[in-house]
Design a protein around this nucleic acid. Structure first.
Lengths: 209, 209
DNA sequence: TCGGGGTGTTACCCCGGGTAACATGCGGCG
DNA sequence: CGCCGCATGTTACCCGGGGTAACACCCCGA
């Protein structure tokens, strides 16, 4: 490290240091996944650890900053899709498509977003990473505002927000890993599930009702 | 450690050592969550690390052994519920109830089961822990065998297996953390979602279709 | 000219996973 | 009886990763 001629990028004063560091972190995470070490990130930035800690406090601070950077895009896209003036089924399909397209285009970033990253002491092991929790809340809000669910509405909206997020997370993860079908078909499969196609389908000959 | 009179449990030769060690690990995990250190587990067993490594290879080996021990129960319960001779809606509710009851009764174990635990090198960051993947396969199988879905059946069954697992994971996790309602109501909310209640509900006054 | 803030370094601590090497107790067998 | 082998156990260590202390430098503005 110390023998190198200091930096590839000429000192670009226009870009604040913090951004440069995040860029470096980004590169490393793209390359090595969310488990990248602070040393590796520092090395990529051409510096040493303490500087990272000065800027971000601790590792989770860095990861959070990095996450927020990418979250905004996906979150905004999902939010916009949720409010598209379309027939409900079309709107839902659109949301699903936007989400899947988002994770498809930057898999490593997606891993970062979905990684619980935890290390929590004793207790709340959230199954949904913060970025996903925001999406869940977005869905909850949309359900609450757009659909008439009677007196149970608040509970149902919250439950469904989490549920749908978890459902799409698991399905998207598997889809990204296996690529069993084109995106459009995946969207259909998920929308069909939400539309009760499983519940409505006829039973097979030898099976129970 | 070394000053202790060696062990509480009298040497019960009938129970193979491995089981005793797993019991100790179990106790620690119940107490400290899935992040428990090997040192802590060894201490609980009244021994030191190398013995653990002799028996389980590495940490993931230990965790896997511990997981398999608990998985069988929940998995068997879910499988049985999936084949209960009931009306479909009742059967689904029963499965949901069995799952929620299972995670409710032993939260720390549940954390263990759902924790991806990863540390995977570059790539497949499975959103579903192995134990949950087994459940997903169980659901896939049930869907494939019980429901007529036409030519797309294989794809739909696999997609839905993962989807439903992820959905219930996320919802169950949140429910366990917040306890927003009794279990029976949660079961209803989830079954309603699968039955397309979101899709079928009337739109609210000011909202899009 | 002096001070202070941002940038940088080396060297260290602690902890947790994982291992090497050595000790001990005990059952079986020549 | 004596010896072997094996499981059980130990101490002491390595390594890598997060995190920090202490010190050095450069530049700019009062």
């Amino acid at each position: 490290m110390s023998t190198e001629p200091r930096r590839q990028q000429p000192p670009n004063a226009a870009e604040p240091r913090r951004e440069q560091l995040l860029n470096a972190a980004d590169r490393v995470v793209q390359r090595e996944g969310p488990g990248a070490s602070m040393n590796a990130i520092a090395a990529e930035a051409g510096i040493t650890k303490p500087i990272l800690y000065r800027h971000f406090g601790d590792r989770t601070g860095l990861i959070r900053a990095l996450t927020e950077r990418h979250t905004s895009g996906l979150l905004a896209a999902v939010r916009a899709a949720l409010n598209e003036p379309l027939e409900r089924r079309d709107r839902v399909e659109h949301v699903l498509d936007v989400y899947l397209a988002g994770i498809e285009s930057r898999p490593q970033v997606y891993r970062l977003l979905t990684h619980p990253e935890s290390g929590d002491p004793a207790g709340a092991g959230q199954a949904l990473a913060p970025a996903l929790r925001q999406i869940a809340e977005e869905i909850t809000k949309a359900v609450r505002e757009q659909v008439d669910l009677g007196p149970d509405a608040p509970l149902l909206a919250e439950t469904w927000g989490r549920s749908i997020t978890g459902m799409v997370l698991a399905a998207g993860d598997w889809w990204l890993d296996q690529r069993p079908c084109p995106r459009a078909r995946m969207v259909q499969a998920l929308a069909d599930l939400l539309w009760g196609r499983l519940a409505a389908a006829a039973p097979l000959p030898g099976a129970p009702a």
